[in-house]
Every structure is written in structure tokens, then in C-alpha cells.
Amino acid sequence: MTESLNQAFSNSPRRQKLQIIGSVFMAIVIAAVMLILYLVVSARVVSMGRQLQQAKDEIDQLVYQGVNYRNQIAQLSRFDVMEEKAKEMGFRPPYPGEVFYVPVPGYKLGPETHVEIEQDTRPAVINVNLLEYHQSLFEWIGEQMNNILRPFEGL
């Protein structure tokens, strides 16, 4: 009776073998998928690493080019060069008696020249929130002790 029940409810030997083979194949497929994913990610990392290296090279090139452009502009706008051009065009410096001042309604007289600063700059805030400014002596000693003992941790 028992034997007939076992036979009735157990897998056939063929099905058992198929299950084992299926499991092995499943493991292989999973491993293969993981390997492929690893290779894909690794390849992407390498590719991005190369891009990063190229971008850094380009940054360097752009810095050099920017410096060269600014230098060329500075050379072309030197005072002696500009003065020479102005003279060639027939200009000369004015004298105080030659200047006419015309009142313009609403214009406020401001003799001082103004400094033009890039619009995207923000006023600097000096960082005084340093540990040294609010740390007590005992906290400092504790920190120093921890620093000294850190190499011996885990021994």
C-alpha cells in the first residue's frame, strides 16, 4: 500500500533527471547573464574612463587656448597700441578748458569710476564655523586621544 502511494506521488526518474539538468542550465544561464552584465558594465566604465581622460585633455587644451586668446586680446588692446591708433585717427587728449558739461535732467553727478564685476559672482562669506571656534578643551583632548588610539583599534 505504502509503496503504491510513494509511486503514485513521487516524480518519475526521468522527470527528476530533467529537473537536475534544468537547474544546472538555469544556473549556467544566470551566471552567463551576470557575466554579460559585468562585461557590459565594465566596457561602459572603460569607455567612460576614456571619455573622462579625453575630456580632461580637452579642458587642458581649452585652458591653454583661453589663456592664448586673452593674451592676444591684451596685446591688441595695449595702451600704446590704442593710443597710436587714436592718434592716427586724428584724436588727441583734451584739456580741462575744452570740456563742456551739459546738465541732463535726472542724471546724478558721480565722479567716481565704478568697478564692473562679473554678474554671477557672489559676495564671499568667510567661514568662521570652524571646529576650533566652538570646541571645548575637553572635546579637543578627546579628539586628540581618539586620533592617537585609532591605529590600535581592532588589535
Binding site: 566604465v45 572603460v46 569607455s47 567612460m48 574612463g49 576614456r50 573622462l52 581622460q53 580632461k56
Partner: peptide, 8 residues
Amino acid sequence: DPHKADQA
């Protein structure tokens, strides 16, 4: 090594 590109 491209993996170390950030170290430049």
C-alpha cells in the same frame, strides 16, 4: 588605466 581616469 581608464578605471583610474579620475586620478588625473
